[in-house]
Design a protein around this nucleic acid. Sequence first.
DNA 1: CGTAGCATGTAAGTTGTTACATGATTCG
DNA 2: CGAATCATGTAACAACTTACATGCTACG
Lengths: 189, 189
Amino acid sequence: MKKLNQSQFALLGLLSLGPRSGYDLKQLSEWSVGHFWREGYGQIYPSLKRLAAAGLVKRSTERNKGRPERMVYTLTARGRKEMAAWLQKSAAAEIPRNELLMKVFFGGMEDTRTGAKNVRKHIADKMAQCERDMEELKETQRRIEREAARHPQKPFWLMTLRYGEHMIRARIAWCGETTKKLNQIKKTR
Amino acid sequence: MKKLNQSQFALLGLLSLGPRSGYDLKQLSEWSVGHFWREGYGQIYPSLKRLAAAGLVKRSTERNKGRPERMVYTLTARGRKEMAAWLQKSAAAEIPRNELLMKVFFGGMEDTRTGAKNVRKHIADKMAQCERDMEELKETQRRIEREAARHPQKPFWLMTLRYGEHMIRARIAWCGETTKKLNQIKKTR
DNA sequence: CGTAGCATGTAAGTTGTTACATGATTCG
DNA sequence: CGAATCATGTAACAACTTACATGCTACG
């Protein structure tokens, strides 16, 4: 049995909330952990197969009239244990990769004035994106209040949303500050 | 000629600052763009080869007494044009992936009280990491002041450092806030 | 004499993304 | 009738990580 990767732990975690099909997991993940973790079907289906082979999830077939067959996966005791052990291990340091910052860093390559103008556009786009992201976060928060108001894990879920809020607010602040600086480059030079 | 990826644009960008060997590029990247972009030799050497084959960089061999041969790469006019075009295109939306948040989100899976205790440890680790990261950022800032005080692109470089500062400060704020909440879970339940 | 730094690369394995393929039902 | 939603998967490719392989010099 090979070592599991982070994507597989994400699936085990989601299955700890209840049995689900690959399709369900995708839908659920989008709004629940979507703000800090995303998986496509191309990862989900093969991963479930491997988890089932390792005995960490159990696969059962569900037939519904009129609808296609569903493969429903349930977390096993071993799967739960494996997940609990992973939760204890400290998280690996994240490798930063920020395309926008690369475009800022090299933005003055050809000419500082036209470069500044171009970078300003990228930052305006980012600012708009941040505002959309914040809306989405608020929507998720409302959804949790609606659908899981009394869930014992709710405080943990809200903490991850707060992280998102802090990050987005910081990004917006940086965008504002940077736009001002870019305007100065355009004028004074 | 295949489409270039972001790693290759990072290399073109670094080469826009002057001719360098693969080894040099790694050293330079670590402190200059290291806070938002990292590459290993396993990416750098094959990428340089492909960039040379595409005519975007020129490879020349440098011999030094006593030292191993160096392969020095210089950005060509076409490479510069290609990079300038890329700088204009808007950045793709980043796919978030945060292992720590996953450990927070599923942290209360087995039991909220022991879960909270475990999560608190992860967050304390993160807080310490943030403080180290902030120190590194300050060190980079000093280095830019020292080595490139009058460089025309300096304002752009400092902007990326400010982004890092904003993010780290936001992370520290979240860690503090979350630790308090976790302490409440441990007591009230 | 050992370690650190200079210097270049390959190979293997793992992961992640994108496009494709299929087919049913429900709703407007 | 067409579009959207439900539902599962594969294939091909692209990207990334890690370990391995080599060998020289300078310094303490």
